Amino acid sequence: MLRYLEHSPVVIHGSSTGRRYEFSAASPKQRVDARDAESLLATPFFRQVNA
């Protein structure tokens, strides 16, 4: 489970799976495939959270 830390809506395609993820201030948390999470967590825009 990742939390998006910004406010602007963003659509991201997972670097490993190609899966489409949509984040925004209204929907900042969602489950992300572990293979994609690694690259997202390497940015300052995401943080891992407990489900």
Results as ranks from 00 to 15, higher is better:
A34E: 12
L41K: 00
Q30N: 01
L41V: 06
F46P: 02
Q48Y: 12
A34V: 12
K29T: 15
Y4M: 00
V11F: 06
G18S: 10
R35V: 00
R20I: 11
E22M: 08
T17D: 06
D36V: 08
P9G: 05
L2A: 05
G14H: 06
D33Y: 01
Q30H: 06
P44Q: 03
R31I: 07
R20K: 15
L41E: 02
L2W: 06
E6L: 14
R20F: 02
D33W: 01
E22A: 11
K29Y: 07
F23Y: 05
S15N: 10
E38P: 00
R35E: 12
N50K: 13
Q30E: 05
S24A: 08
R19G: 00
T43N: 02
L5V: 06
Y4V: 02
H7Q: 13
V49M: 03
P28W: 07
P9M: 03
L5A: 04
A34R: 15
R47Y: 00
A26N: 11
H13V: 14
K29D: 14
R31N: 11
D33H: 14
E6N: 10
A34G: 06
M1F: 10
M1S: 13
P28R: 01
S39F: 08
D36I: 05
L41A: 02
N50W: 09
N50S: 15
L5Q: 05
S24D: 09
S16D: 11
E22Y: 09
A25G: 07
G18T: 11
T17Q: 03
R35H: 07
E38G: 07
S24P: 04
Q48T: 12
V11P: 00
F45G: 00
M1L: 11
P28D: 08
D36L: 01
F45H: 13
G18K: 04
R35A: 15
L41M: 08
L41W: 02
S8E: 15
R3G: 01
V49G: 03
F23L: 00
A26E: 14
G18P: 10
G14Y: 02
F23V: 08
H13G: 08
R19H: 13
G14R: 05
A26I: 06
E38Q: 12
S39A: 14
V10F: 05
I12M: 01
A51K: 12
V49Q: 03
A34Q: 12
V49F: 07
M1D: 14
P9I: 07
T43G: 02
R35N: 09
F23Q: 04
A25T: 07
D33P: 00
E22C: 10
R35W: 05
N50Q: 15
V10C: 04
